[in-house]
C-alpha cells in the first residue's frame, strides 16, 4: 500500500511540475463569462470556486432571486470555460480522461472572442 501511495504521490508531483511549467508559460488558467448586458461577470478557476464575482449596480434591480439565478448561470458558464481551457492547456501533459475523471469536463472549444467553434 505504501508503495502505491508513494508511486501515486510521485506521479502527482511529476504532473504538478509539468503543469507548473506550462502555466508559467501560458499564465493562470481561468474562465470568464458575463451576462449579455454586463449585469454579472464571473472569473472561474478549473476545479475550484469562482475567483471573482462582479455585479453591476444595475443588476441590483433584478432582485435577490433574479440576481442569484443570474450569478449561478454565469458562474456555470465561467466554470465550463475554465475547465475547457485547462484541457486545452494540458492536452500534451495529462491524459484528458484523467482530467475528466476528476470532474473537469471539456466543453466545446471557444475562440479568443468567446464564440463556440
Amino acid at each position: 500500500m505504501d508503495d502505491d501511495v508513494e508511486r501515486a504521490a510521485r506521479k502527482v508531483r511529476e504532473v504538478e511540475q509539468a503543469v507548473a511549467e506550462r502555466v508559467t508559460r501560458t499564465g493562470p488558467i481561468t474562465g470568464r463569462a458575463s451576462s449579455p448586458d454586463g449585469a454579472v461577470t464571473v472569473v472561474a478557476t478549473p476545479g475550484g470556486p469562482p475567483q471573482q464575482v462582479v455585479v453591476s449596480p444595475a443588476a441590483l434591480r433584478m432582485g435577490p432571486q433574479g440576481l442569484a439565478a443570474e450569478i449561478m448561470r454565469i458562474a456555470d458558464r465561467a466554470r465550463r470555460t475554465a475547465n475547457t481551457r485547462l484541457h486545452q492547456a494540458l492536452d500534451r501533459v495529462v491524459d484528458p480522461r484523467e482530467l475528466a475523471a476528476t470532474g473537469i469536463e471539456r466543453g466545446p472549444d471557444e475562440d479568443d472572442f468567446g464564440w463556440h467553434r
Binding site: 470556486p49 435577490p64 432571486q65 440576481l67 449561478m72 466554470r79
Partner: peptide
C-alpha cells in the same frame, strides 16, 4: 469542485451595494 448548486441572497445584502 466549486459548482454553485443553490444561492440565496438576502434583500439586505443588495441594499449594501453591488460591490
Amino acid at each position: 469542485a466549486g459548482e454553485i448548486r443553490a444561492l440565496h441572497l438576502h434583500p439586505a445584502l443588495l441594499r449594501q451595494g453591488a460591490q
